[in-house]
Nucleic acid binder design. Structure first.
Length: 576
DNA sequence: GCCGTTTTCGGCCCGACTGTTTTCAGTCG
């Protein structure tokens, strides 16, 4: 998929263009980059299907940019980009990663001192040559040196599952301050995006100075980027930034809306406000300088003619149109998203019979504490030695053990399941005769990831068509930022899954989150049911259900789309 | 470069903080 490659070039082109003047052309390229990044379909497929006209149908892609996309697909290059790069041959990607350095200053440094990359920059700054330039000073030079160190350590984005606990800790610390009247996580963490670049926190206070003082002096801070009365920003030693914004109570909703994003969602909202003769900013919705909304988010949306939109949906990918429809009582409304407390059972769980670390009885007690009605034990049945998979004999033994635990522990039902390997030809590692005795069979691919698209699609379809397979676990096989996932024809998979009533899993593990949000949305549209499973290997995994539900919400899933929101009875009935 | 329920030209979301200035450009989100 070339979407990300092209997006990256567009971002760089935007920077190059900005070197000469802050132009709307650069804004257009940036926007095109973001569009490509969040596009659910392969841009090359779109182009092959309908050519330039099909590309131009994407909002934000016009004649010029569509042409550049075509050029890249055909030749692997974009001439305009090469030209821009030639004019100022610097390592833009690395240099812009230095906080405080943007296109203009990078060009200036290149023209004056021939600085092309981080190494040149560091050398020149250390020699004291930067502070003497026009528009720079000693402080700029010092900041550049510090920022280089931090840029060197930059690890990019972090998993939501890693960031959320840290963000919540900071929130709890700030909450302790008597000056804090209200507080919320904002930004992409509030939208529950699967990876997070930095932490955004919003505080309501009429005495911001003490809170800001505390914030920039918290433990674990490497550098204070900025400190003001309404806005401060710091770098945490763990490798990412935290931003704090403080507003007054009457602006809480507007600020929360503004600070939650996404950027494109906000821009679209402001345009809508503008058309109505209103102004939307982080302090409220204004008509002729008079605030008409702002205290809570719902009012902000209503003031510009929309229904409230849940944070997880705010990506400007149709939710604004749906909110408009809903506010006007028309069809094609917003989904009634699955709630964080709607899950009635865990359906992907490994015990110490395979590669989990907890006994079945121990797992049952935790699941009961989670208020689940049921827990499906789905140990591996696999030839892979490392997972200590079950064979047919041990499956029967384990069933007996589950019967024993069910008798011993009341208030939760342990179901008999398996996560069985789908072999290269699509057949399963366990005989149908044994599978038929189980309550739930997850089919999963754990080897032979590199198969070509046609073969892999056939392989999965064969498993989907096996009458004993209830669920395909982690259906695309991707690992966030590590493995792209297998080549599959997802539309065909959906078609067969629907026909065979085979469900797809939303694997809730923080580094899998597989299906992706865009896949979930397509599955829902295709009428394919899903389950959310955390792939428990020890007791800490249970809490990742929150991430799985968030993923489902970002994919517009409703309660009825997710089977383990059903009662035990209905859950079993579906899979019979 | 993109876009159109006033427009095929003339707009384009909006504001905070910093450093170097002395009223603002650059950067960031």
């Amino acid at each position: 998929m070339k979407n990300l490659e092209i997006a990256k070039i567009f971002y760089l082109m935007a920077e190059f263009i900005q070197m000469d003047k802050a132009s709307f052309i650069s804004i257009a390229y940036n926007k095109a980059g973001r569009i490509l990044e969040s596009l659910e379909k392969d841009i090359e497929e779109i182009y092959n299907k309908g050519g330039l006209d099909e590309l131009k149908k994407i909002p934000g892609i016009g004649k010029g940019i569509a042409g550049k996309i075509e050029e890249y697909i055909k030749t692997g290059k974009i001439k305009r980009y090469q030209e821009l790069k030639k004019k100022c041959p610097v390592d833009l990607e690395k240099l812009t990663s230095v906080e405080g350095l943007g296109a203009k200053r990078i060009k200036f440094l290149y023209k004056k001192l021939k600085i092309k990359n981080l190494k040149d920059l560091e050398k020149t700054a250390k020699a004291g040559k930067i502070g003497k330039l026009d528009g720079f000073g000693d402080k700029s030079e010092k900041n550049i040196l510090q920022s280089i160190e931090i840029a060197k350590l930059d690890k990019g984005r972090f998993l939501l599952g890693k960031i959320l606990p840290i963000a919540r800790n900071i929130v709890n610390e700030l909450k302790e301050l008597p000056e804090t009247e209200n507080i919320s996580i904002a930004g992409s963490a509030r939208r529950m995006k699967e990876t997070i670049g930095d932490i955004d926190i919003l505080v309501i206070s009429s005495k911001p100075s003490k809170i800001m003082d505390f914030f920039v002096q918290m433990s674990g801070i490497d550098k204070v980027w900025a400190k003001g009365m309404t806005k401060s920003s710091v770098r945490l030693r763990r490798g990412f930034d935290a931003d704090l914004r403080i507003v007054k109570e009457q602006s809480f909703g507007a600020a929360l809306q503004y600070f939650t994003g996404s950027k494109d969602h906000n821009i679209a909202l402001r345009k809508i406000a503008q058309k109505k003769g209103l102004k939307l900013n982080e302090y409220g919705v204004y008509r002729n300088n008079k605030q008409i909304a702002g205290k809570n988010e719902k009012q902000v949306y209503q003031a510009i003619g929309l229904s409230y939109i849940e944070p997880e949906l705010r990506t400007n990918s149709g939710e604004i149109e749906a909110a408009l429809q809903q506010a006007q009582g028309k069809p094609n409304q917003l989904p009634k998203l699955i709630g964080y407390n709607d899950i009635k059972g865990e359906c992907h769980c490994h015990s110490d019979w395979s590669d989990g670390s907890e006994t079945i009885e121990g797992l049952a007690r935790i699941a009961k504490k989670m208020n689940y009605q049921y827990l499906v034990i789905t140990d591996h049945a696999s030839p892979l030695g490392i997972v200590h998979g079950l064979d047919e004999k041990r499956i029967l033994k384990q069933m007996a053990e589950i019967d024993r635990v069910n008798k011993k522990i009341r208030g939760i039902k342990i179901l008999k399941g398996i996560e069985v390997d789908i072999k290269a030809d699509g057949s399963l590692f366990i005989k149908d005769e044994i599978l038929s005795k189980l309550d739930l069979v997850l089919g999963a691919i754990h080897s032979g990831f590199k198969m070509d698209k046609e073969k892999m699609t056939k392989r999965l379809i064969k498993a989907i068509e096996n009458p004993h397979v209830d669920v395909i676990a982690h259906p695309t096989g991707r690992i966030i930022d590590k493995r792209p996932g297998y080549q599959i024809d997802f539309d065909k998979i959906l078609e067969k899954a629907k026909k065979n009533k085979t469900a797809l899993e939303i694997n809730a593990h923080m580094s899998r989150l597989d299906l992706r949000d865009v896949d979930i949305r397509r599955a829902k549209q295709a009428g394919v049911k899903m389950v959310i499973g955390t792939d428990v290997h020890n007791i800490s995994y249970f809490s990742m259900m929150e991430l799985g539900v968030a993923q489902a919400r970002r994919g517009w899933a409703e309660k009825k789309d997710i089977l383990n929101t059903s009662s035990l009875k209905n859950f079993l009935k579906y899979f019979k």
